[in-house]
Amino acid sequence: MMNYDLYWSFRSPYSYFIVPRLLEIQRTYDVDCNVRPVYPLAVRAPEFFDARDPLWTPYLLRDTTRQAEFLGLPYRWPRPDPVRMVAGDYRVEQPYIHRLTHLGVAAAERRRGLPFLREVSHIIWSGEVDNWHEGDHLRQATERAGLDYDELSHAVDNDADRYRAIVEQNQRDQREAGHWGVPMMVFGGEPFFGQDRVDQLVWRMEQQGLSPAK
């Protein structure tokens, strides 16, 4: 079975967009996805946004809305945003994104990484749920992904340092593979950055003998 790494962030709309196609690849071909969650750029390198062009945000919102429409996916900027910002600054307490990312790592360790990303990113980005962080939204999403929410929560809440170290290693490996952005797939040491590189990823794997799922 072939495999590839997926570097992915819960704060990236483009990461949300790519997951259904990666799940379809997994259903269609004899291939496995190694889900490797990373913290979003706003958390690991907030200085990146200090000098951004004023056109950056308007274009992002236009492009993501257009891409969601093109893919037929429901979409709205999350309420709340997984990354907290105060007065334009991300250098503040972050009550959501670290735990979300650690839950993603734990799901990947239990071989349910892609289903977990699909279900949780949907409640965050689809616009179908307000206050995705409250009530039982995360619990239900986790259970739809075939995981036990209490067991997953216990794992990440009682060993946060371990999960933080895994994420930080993912981030180092991501850069060593050739890029820092998400979503990013790496196959055979070759990086494929962006949700529009799925076809190229499959093309490259086919060159290496990718076979249909059994």
Score class of each variant (00 low, 15 high):
residue 128 E to S: 05
residue 57 T to A: 09
residue 194 G to M: 15
residue 115 P to N: 11
residue 7 Y to P: 05
residue 138 L to I: 07
residue 164 R to A: 10
residue 185 M to R: 04
residue 37 P to W: 06
residue 43 V to F: 04
residue 158 N to M: 07
residue 56 W to K: 15
residue 45 A to N: 09
residue 157 D to L: 08
residue 85 M to E: 14
residue 86 V to Y: 05
residue 168 E to R: 08
residue 81 D to I: 10
residue 196 D to G: 11
residue 164 R to V: 06
residue 208 Q to M: 15
residue 69 E to W: 11
residue 36 R to P: 02
residue 125 W to K: 00
residue 79 R to S: 12
residue 120 V to E: 03
residue 211 S to W: 08
residue 42 A to C: 10
residue 184 M to Q: 08
residue 197 R to I: 12
residue 93 E to F: 02
residue 88 G to F: 00
residue 129 V to W: 07
residue 165 A to I: 00
residue 2 M to G: 13
residue 181 G to L: 12
residue 151 E to Y: 08
residue 85 M to H: 02
residue 54 P to G: 01
residue 86 V to L: 09
residue 4 Y to W: 15
residue 191 P to C: 09
residue 52 R to T: 11
residue 60 L to N: 11
residue 102 H to E: 06
residue 134 E to T: 01
residue 183 P to Q: 12
residue 105 V to E: 07
residue 183 P to H: 15
residue 99 R to M: 02
residue 2 M to T: 15
residue 201 L to I: 09
residue 141 A to F: 05
residue 122 H to C: 03
residue 37 P to C: 04
residue 186 V to H: 05
residue 133 H to M: 00
residue 94 Q to F: 01
residue 62 R to T: 12
residue 114 L to Q: 00
residue 153 S to K: 14
residue 107 A to R: 04
residue 88 G to L: 02
residue 102 H to D: 07
residue 24 E to W: 10
residue 126 S to H: 03
residue 143 E to R: 08
residue 209 G to N: 03
residue 67 Q to F: 12
residue 48 F to M: 07
residue 150 D to Q: 15
residue 45 A to G: 04
residue 159 D to F: 10
residue 190 E to C: 04
residue 188 G to I: 05
residue 29 Y to V: 06
residue 88 G to Y: 02
residue 102 H to L: 06
residue 126 S to G: 02
residue 144 R to Q: 11
residue 46 P to I: 06
residue 133 H to R: 00
residue 122 H to A: 09
residue 32 D to R: 07
residue 37 P to E: 07
residue 89 D to Y: 00
residue 55 L to Q: 07
residue 40 P to S: 13
residue 51 A to C: 01
